[in-house]
């Protein structure tokens, strides 16, 4: 039992230490602003097109599915409300986070993993640079800034996707749809919809860095680290969204 439990507990401990150092470095010089902007470009701008695409189609699909159920009660006019709440509170943050986890947790893990196996991380330390300061903290900051922004874009594009169906297929007017969508959202929904991507960003970036930095075993090890990073980051997104939803539902 002890042998079985030791590795995951030790890994969790290492992860918490890495997270602690990465956060501490935010307040300590030197700050690598160039790296932060480069990562914001890679994570934020780089993920924009895929986030827009999936956001749009998820809004489209939710509207189509919901309209059928609402039609039974003659309430298709309320579809904007359902789309807005579902996307802003849950699907927007989670779908965007899963996409970014697949795209960037893997990218981060493979980049840092390759650096580890080619001794670039050791070289960095030998040349007087803290790899956590230079590599982890900029990725964490960039992800925490861009993921909430991407989520806002995804939410909006999703609601717009819903509007396309509401207008073309359900025959709702623009004001009917947008008023119902706008009025459905409360302060609590917005806070929840922005807090979730912030927490996900923190976990996705650090999981990617964590598995990248502990890569061993050459190129095969890089592949393994990349897979682990995506799987673990994705699972944590679902676990955390359940936890956060529970907290916010109770607050209501």
């Amino acid at each position: 039992m002890r042998d079985f439990l030791t590795p995951p507990i030790a890994a969790l401990q290492d992860f918490i230490i890495l997270a602690g150092r990465a956060v501490r470095n935010v307040f300590r010089p030197p700050h690598y602003a160039d790296d932060i902007f480069l990562q914001m470009d890679i994570i934020g701008v780089g993920s924009l097109s895929i986030v827009i695409l999936t956001g749009f189609f998820s809004g489209l699909v939710i509207t189509m599915q919901m309209s059928r159920a609402l039609a039974q009660y003659g309430a298709t006019g309320q579809v904007g409300q359902i789309v807005a709440i579902t996307l802003v509170r849950e699907l927007g943050p989670v779908l965007t986070a899963i996409l970014v986890a697949g795209r960037n947790a893997s990218g981060i893990a493979s980049e840092l993993g390759s650096m580890k196996v080619t001794e670039q991380i050791d070289a960095m330390r030998a040349l007087g640079t803290d790899p956590i300061q230079k590599l982890v903290t900029p990725r964490m900051i960039a992800m925490c800034v861009t993921l909430p922004m991407l989520t806002i874009v995804s939410d909006f594009v999703g609601i717009f996707g819903g509007f396309v169906i509401a207008r073309l297929s359900l025959g709702l007017t623009a004001s009917q749809y947008w008023t119902s969508a706008y009025q459905a959202l409360e302060y609590n929904d917005i806070v929840q919809g922005l807090l979730k991507p912030f927490v996900f960003a923190f976990v996705i970036s650090l999981v990617g860095c964590f598995y990248g930095l502990r890569t061993t075993g050459g190129t095969q090890g890089v592949g393994r680290a990349t897979t682990q990073a995506v799987v673990v980051a994705s699972v944590w997104v679902f676990v955390l969204t359940a936890l956060l939803t529970r907290i916010f539902v109770n607050l209501n």
Binding site: M115, E119, D122, A123, D130
Partner: peptide, 22 residues
């Protein structure tokens, strides 16, 4: 680690494959 940086700056090191930053 931070205290080591000053001491390490007096040592040159060549890693096995060069250890150059890609």
């Amino acid at each position: 680690e931070k205290e080591l940086f000053a001491i390490r700056s007096r040592v040159g090191v060549l890693f096995q494959e060069g250890g150059l930053f890609d």
